[in-house]
Design a protein around this nucleic acid. Structure first.
Lengths: 207, 207
DNA sequence: GTCTATAGTTGGATAGAC
DNA sequence: GTCTATCCAACTATAGAC
């Protein structure tokens, strides 16, 4: 249609690819279907992207950043650490629940990336990003609650990511929302138990 | 080649499909590649299976039953529940570690099944099977340790499955074995904490 | 920058000889 | 039961007109 600058055209195509992939799976996101979704011809996609893998790499970036944005840092400023974690995980869960296709696509992208060297980075970046965000949330929650973690925050962040992914995968299969929430709440307890009240004074004041 | 009865031929083809899929991913397991792997011609596969989906359904069954067999119930007969769970998870983890391709294929099968109504059952059965086995192991461990679970075993089994899947997915991406083991050990603590000594007397003997 | 047309592969499925 | 030959659909990618 209209003549757009390359950057905008790429953005449009990436979002078209994302829409198709969320709706019908990553295998359905062919160059042809993406072109059709965006309302452009096949040649345009090949003009804007080196090849299909480059397009998928961009889709991976968008999915990853959306995962991060969804957490939205609406962490309640409560001194009750368990409540704060529960609320944070609840927020994450609501986002997953309302974006089933995106969550499934996220897993599809990971497995695809693990088989395709050209896409390997997509899986790595996604995991790293998720872990990083979890770490920030955990750190922030501890600060607000006046506690400190008894094991490295990084390890706890990994636990959170694994728990969320594991619960999400099961939920995609059995659609048991109540069980998913219960599982996340249980994991939240586990994480919260790895904290103790922070020493509010200086390090040498204990006695 | 030789003229095999249908059942054996099917078995041979399913295992050929499994080999290809483990090695190169589910998308590589085309009817043609499977036929080549088994050393038969294209027509034979179509003669033995209704269509590709039926072949993949059989692959799903085999993968699922292998997951179960791998646990092997080598649960140590120790009264230390935490140690028993740690050993069980350790065993599961060794199996996953030594079968990276199979673990990845397991996830690929799940996502594929979630997009394809013809394969939907593969995902359901796999999750159900895993949960069932976890439940049996947890029950058995509690018996040996002389404890009882304070929450429904079914819920704990779901936690185990989610934890294992989440940890396995992360490991497939970052290959950090030590972190994976640490995460599983942490989750084992969490599960073990959901137990209390069983009342050895009758139900009415409590004071 | 966008389009049509087409080359070149690959895949699922079937027909029919043996 | 097994094979070869073939059909047809869909895909990635490119060439070249506009």
């Amino acid at each position: 249609m209209s003549r757009l600058p390359m950057a905008e055209r790429r953005d449009q195509l990436v979002h078209a690819a994302l829409a198709v992939a969320i709706r019908e799976g990553i295998d359905a996101a062919t160059v042809r279907r993406v072109a059709a979704e965006a309302g452009v011809s096949l040649g345009v996609v090949h003009y804007c992207f080196e090849d299909k893998d480059e397009l998928l790499r961009e889709v991976g970036k968008v999915i990853t950043s959306q995962n991060v944005e969804r957490v939205a840092f609406d962490l309640p400023a409560t001194p009750d650490l368990r409540a704060a974690l529960g609320a944070a995980l609840g927020g994450v869960w609501d986002a997953i629940r309302e974006n089933r296709g995106a969550q499934l696509l996220s897993f599809e992208l990971t497995t695809t990336a693990l088989r395709n060297p050209e896409l390997r980075g997509v899986a790595t970046v996604q995991l790293e990003h998720d872990t990083e965000v979890s770490e920030q949330v955990l750190t922030q929650a501890a600060e607000v609650a006046g506690t400190r973690w008894t094991v490295p925050v990084r390890e706890l962040a990994r636990l959170c990511v694994a728990a969320i992914n594991g619960v999400a995968l099961a939920w995609l299969v059995d659609e048991d929302d109540a069980a998913a929430r219960a599982a996340l709440a249980s994991f939240a307890d586990h994480i919260a138990a790895r904290s103790v009240p922070a020493e509010v004074g200086s390090r040498v004041s204990a006695g």
